[in-house]
Each structure stands twice: as structure tokens, then as C-alpha cells.
Amino acid sequence: MGVEKEVKKEVLKDDFPGQVIPAGNGGNIVVGVLDKIINWGRSNSLWPLYFGTSCCAIEMMQTGAARHDWSRFGFEVARPTPRQADVIVIAGTITNKMAPALRKLYDQMAEPKYVVAMGACAISGGPFYYNSYSVVRGADHVIPVDVYVPGCPPRPESLLDAMIKLQKKIRSTKNSERVNPIEGFDEGK
């Protein structure tokens, strides 16, 4: 008993207010449960930013409509403004003229923010990879992307699958270790 008291005195200052539970004695458990609760809330109320530039936007609308109905998973509050959105769904081609606007939208979104690149154009330029002088070869040259959805355009089921994968990714993150995705982003150089 006497030995333990001596160790505590070394760690804590005399004027420290309150009581501290040593690590491994309950403190970590509280943080872990909080992580789960936060992630559960975050993943089930993802508000997408409606960013449709071309054909994929129609399939995104179909996903929101009655048959596929993405509100079953908590994505129904599609917002046209970045300030109220959690996830940006890039549905369509990004051109050289559009790229600065996309980056500005991304920067305006509040943390935590996620990106889904929908369709071949947003992944790599798609049909416009060769011979086009005005298309950005993939949205990940502009902003960091979390989930890629292949297809030209992808079926609504693919988009739903991608959003569910994003939910899984959110649930597996530790909030104490999470970093801002834009830090260290090399813009595809």
C-alpha cells in the first residue's frame, strides 16, 4: 500500500482538483463507448451535398426516389449548401473550370466531412480520359476521396452500397486518432 501512494504522488501535483482514475481502471472504457455512440450517430445521419454535374446526377435522383429510397439509411436530407452537409457525392465529370469551385465547396463543409466519387468520370475521367483537353482525370486530384463507385453511370444499388461502405468506415474510426483528411493531401502530384 505504501509503495502505491508514493507512485501517485510522483504523477499528480498537490493542487490538482478532483480525483483521477488510473488508466486501465475504467477510464478507457468510457472513451471507447463514447466513440461508438458518436460513430453510430454520425453514420446514421449522413447528410449528402447534392453535387450533380452530369449524367450521374439522374441516377443519384433515382436513388433518392421511391423505389431505392436512400432515406432508409439516413441520407434523405440532401442539401444544396455545403455548410449543412456531411458527405459530398460527386456525381459527374469535373472539368478544369469546375475544379476550383469543387475545392471551395469542400473547404466550406464542416468537419467531419467525407467524399464519395460516383461514376467513371469522378474516378478517373472515364470516357474523357483520352483526348480531352478540359477534363480533370479524377476528382481525387482536387479533394481526398473516401469511397469510389464504378459505373457509367452506376446503378442506384451501387450508390447505396457505397454509402453503406462509408457508414462502415465511419463506424470503425477512433475519434481521438482521426485527422483532417485534407492534411497531407498531395492533390495527386
Binding site: 454535374t53 452530369s54 459527374g92 472539368t95 474523357f128 483526348n131 480531352s132 477534363v135
Partner: peptide
């Protein structure tokens, strides 16, 4: 204009006629 200008007309000048259809 031009935020979704994808240079399709210029691309057509390099494609064959069967390839143009899908653009």
C-alpha cells in the same frame, strides 16, 4: 458557360464513326 465543357466535339475528330455514337 463551360463548367461542364468536356470537349466532346474535339474528341469526335479522333474517333471513328462507330465510337462517336457512345459519346
Amino acid at each position: 458557360l463551360g463548367y461542364i465543357h468536356r470537349s466532346i466535339e474535339k474528341m469526335c475528330e479522333r474517333d471513328t464513326y462507330k465510337q462517336i455514337v457512345h459519346l
